[in-house]
Design a protein around this nucleic acid. Structure first.
Lengths: 154, 154
DNA sequence: ATCTAAATTGACCTTTAACGTAAAGTTCTG
DNA sequence: CAGAACTTTACGTTAAAGGTCAATTTAGAT
């Protein structure tokens, strides 16, 4: 058995590249627990709590907010073995995945569009903006369907 | 020649599902230009500016901020004639493309990682938090390198 | 015992984007 | 001329994740 080492806030701060304030803030939110103190002694965090910080950072990287992470932690605490935790976590993950896929699609479209612009840049004179006096001769017709809106007389 | 029709702010607002405030805000940012007025008459927007709104919405959907859109508009305005400027604009575009491709790659990695977690979720029992009394037996070792940090005694 | 670095609490502050909202007055349209 | 639509100015909103004092206290080393 390894003797339980404990960490001071400054150590953790250096380990994870966080400020002490951030760590205290995590604790304030209930994401971490320092060992019991009587009075205002320096905080001590167990190794388990150090690991938690790493975990928090992972989840944060995955786009979860601290509130969501807290929610997950609470679920896990309440139901150490239960399927409910697993289920809710799976839901969260899937939601994030969908979101991410959407974002990727948006970026792909953006890239397409920008590529198209670059092409136009090399070929067309008035390349950026609908050049027609009226939208009737809009060269951008395929990408700019305002003509339809206008003709509908909305 | 079609007679230049002009639009009042309320018309545009209905056409594009924006509030008048939003449209005024766009103008305030320099994204739109209403026709010249003497005094506080009602704004009139040319058809060209109506088209611009559509364009703004497109770019917004692609994830650009209004500031970025403004930047693009400015670039385009400055380029209106010269080839050299066109070239620098092309460079800007290419830079943005690179940027976007990088962002896409990051998102792909993120998706991979999340997918991995989802898999684990379905296979591992103690899936949530490093279960070891000490990090030495952390099942998450490959993805959770806190062990390294700890052993470094940072 | 002292010195100093490191920590403590509490309270307010910051940042950003893209508008919302109110108020009080003016212009346009039928 | 009614009243809808519009004008300007200017402050408010939203939330997340800490930042920044400030005054004090503790921990650990000499």
């Amino acid at each position: 058995m390894s003797s339980e080492r404990s960490y001071k806030i400054g150590e953790l701060s250096r380990m994870f590249g966080l400020t002490a304030r951030a760590i205290r803030y995590y604790e304030e939110l209930g994401l971490l627990e320092s060992e019991d103190r009587d009075g205002p002694e320096h905080r001590r965090y167990s190794e388990r709590n150090a690991v938690r910080i790493k975990r928090i950072q992972q989840l944060k990287d995955y786009g979860l907010t601290l509130a969501e992470i807290h929610e997950l932690f609470e679920l896990a605490r309440r139901d150490r073995s239960g399927d409910s935790v697993r289920k809710s976590l799976a839901e969260k993950y899937h939601a994030r995945l969908d979101e991410a896929r959407k974002r990727r699609q948006a970026i792909d479209e953006y890239i397409d569009d920008l590529s198209w612009h670059v092409e136009q840049l090399e070929r067309v004179q008035d390349f950026f903006e609908c050049p027609g006096a009226s939208c009737a001769d809009c060269r951008w017709a395929e990408r700019c369907d305002v003509r339809l809106l206008v003709s509908k007389g909305v």
